[in-house]
Amino acid sequence: MANQFIPQPPVIVSVKKTSFFGQPAAIISGTEDLSGVPSGDSIVIKIEDLTASSTLTNPPVAVNSDGTWNAVVPSTSGDSAIAFAILITSTSPGPTSDPSVTFVLP
Rank of each mutant, 00 (worst) to 15 (best):
M1P: 10
A2Y: 13
Q4P: 02
Q4G: 10
Q4D: 12
I6K: 10
P7R: 04
P9M: 02
P9N: 06
P10W: 07
I12T: 07
I12K: 00
V13D: 15
V13N: 13
K16Q: 14
S19M: 04
S19G: 05
S19Q: 11
F20G: 12
G22M: 14
Q23R: 15
Q23E: 13
Q23N: 13
A25E: 07
A26S: 15
I27L: 08
S29Q: 13
G30L: 01
T31C: 02
E32D: 01
D33C: 09
L34K: 11
S35K: 06
V37R: 06
V37G: 12
V37M: 11
P38L: 02
S39F: 04
G40T: 12
I43W: 13
I43F: 14
I43Y: 10
I47K: 10
I47A: 06
E48D: 07
E48F: 04
D49I: 08
D49L: 12
L50N: 02
T51N: 03
A52M: 09
A52K: 11
S53R: 07
T55N: 11
T55D: 11
T57I: 06
T57G: 10
T57C: 12
P59Q: 11
V63S: 14
N64Q: 12
N64H: 06
N64G: 14
G67R: 10
W69Q: 02
W69A: 05
A71M: 05
V72P: 07
V73F: 04
V73I: 09
P74A: 04
S77C: 06
S80K: 12
A81D: 01
A81K: 10
I82F: 00
I82H: 05
I82G: 02
A83M: 01
F84P: 01
F84S: 02
A85C: 00
S92E: 08
G94P: 05
G94S: 02
P95L: 04
P95M: 06
S97L: 05
D98I: 05
S100C: 06
T102W: 00
F103M: 03
L105P: 05
L105V: 09
